[in-house]
Simulated assay, not measured.
Amino acid sequence: MAGNSKRRGAVRKAGTKKGAQVGSGGQGRKSLRGKGPTPKAEDRPYHPAAKRKASAERSAPRRSRPAGDRPYEVIGGRNSVLEALRADVPASTVYVATGVGGDERTAEIRRIIADRGIPLLEVTRTELDRLTDGGVHQGVGLQVPTYTYAEPADLLSTDAPGAPLIVALDSVTDPRNLGAALRSAGAFGAHGVLIPQRRSAGLTASAWKVSAGAAARVPVARATNLVRALGEYKKAGCFVVGLDGEAQTPVAELPLVHEPLVLVLGSEGKGLGRLVRETCDALVSIPISASMESLNAGTAIGIALYEVARQRSEG
């Protein structure tokens, strides 16, 4: 009934009336802020994808520091280790993986290090993977000091017989191609290999391995400026020849092959740089099938060195 003050809710209790509010004073500002984009599933701590990622990181082998940050290299592979020891390369430690099978190479490795007093450490395969930066080591690794490069002029003053024969690599950045070039240089009597200091592969453990020990016998020089070094070779009486797929002269007709010779090879993709090409006295090519665009650097320099060795041997 209207006016019945005893009806429940008819009379407001004192002190409960809400007055007008001027403002919140910024108290609700945080609730208006966005929380940003939703993180990826693998970045959310409680998501199954994040747990799988964390598990994979824990089980992955730890990577060693880059070779440039440490004063040594670890050569992996039985042939590479044995060739380095035969060439009396300074070595501080030999690593052998636990349970690795023995053969004639590992037996000779053990004999050599026993005679020289080089420590032998047995490690897990995981540890050897880390030491060799994940390379194929066949259960054997050899720790050697970081390679000491020769000076460009040193390649002309070696005691090797015959007219000087030098291989120069222009912007060859794959250490496997450097190793292959070293192997060919050792097989065909080259006096040394010249590489630029920048934009070039260095003599890392990977190059050591591919060279199959040739890196211990063939000196490698590093030039601050490759064009300038080639110019100095020319002043010293060398004939500088560049390998170029578009050259008209085939490598079999290589001129002045019995004179002091520098063979220059560029990268597989870009070939010789412009200034290097202009410095060359001649350009030669390796005839290949039209279905192939080019040869990799290691194969090309091997063919060219073989041709030089063949012509020189025939007089």
Score class of each variant (00 low, 15 high):
66 P>N: 12
59 S>N: 13
252 A>N: 05
219 P>W: 10
60 A>Y: 15
127 E>V: 15
62 R>T: 12
286 I>D: 06
197 Q>F: 05
12 R>V: 14
158 T>G: 06
287 P>F: 10
167 V>L: 06
125 R>W: 09
130 R>V: 15
228 R>L: 09
66 P>S: 09
129 D>L: 13
275 L>T: 07
258 H>S: 14
275 L>I: 04
269 G>F: 01
183 R>Y: 11
200 S>L: 01
23 G>M: 11
190 A>Y: 04
201 A>L: 00
130 R>I: 02
246 E>F: 03
82 L>H: 15
102 G>V: 12
96 V>Q: 08
235 K>W: 06
191 H>D: 05
48 P>Y: 03
141 G>V: 12
199 R>V: 08
169 L>T: 04
309 A>G: 02
254 L>I: 03
171 S>A: 11
226 L>R: 08
237 G>W: 03
110 R>T: 12
283 L>G: 12
234 K>E: 14
234 K>N: 02
24 S>E: 04
236 A>M: 06
207 A>Y: 07
106 T>D: 03
215 A>C: 09
49 A>H: 04
75 I>L: 14
112 I>R: 09
242 G>L: 15
65 R>L: 14
9 G>N: 07
21 Q>K: 10
201 A>Q: 00
172 V>P: 02
188 F>K: 09
86 R>Y: 04
245 G>D: 04
206 S>P: 02
181 A>M: 02
26 G>S: 02
147 Y>T: 00
227 V>W: 05
174 D>A: 13
194 L>P: 01
263 L>I: 14
280 C>D: 10
245 G>A: 08
249 T>A: 12
252 A>P: 02
173 T>D: 06
224 T>F: 13
262 V>T: 00
248 Q>G: 14
186 G>F: 12
97 A>S: 10
187 A>S: 00
61 P>F: 05
184 S>A: 15
120 L>W: 00
202 G>Y: 01
299 T>H: 09
215 A>W: 07
23 G>N: 15
97 A>R: 01
161 P>W: 05
98 T>R: 10
115 D>V: 12
99 G>F: 00
121 L>R: 15
155 L>G: 04
31 S>T: 01
144 V>D: 06
28 G>N: 09
275 L>S: 13
170 D>H: 05
98 T>L: 06
225 N>E: 15
227 V>E: 11
38 T>I: 10
49 A>D: 07
174 D>R: 04
138 Q>I: 13
50 A>D: 03
3 G>S: 00
60 A>N: 14
120 L>C: 08
308 V>C: 01
269 G>R: 08
141 G>D: 07
53 K>P: 02
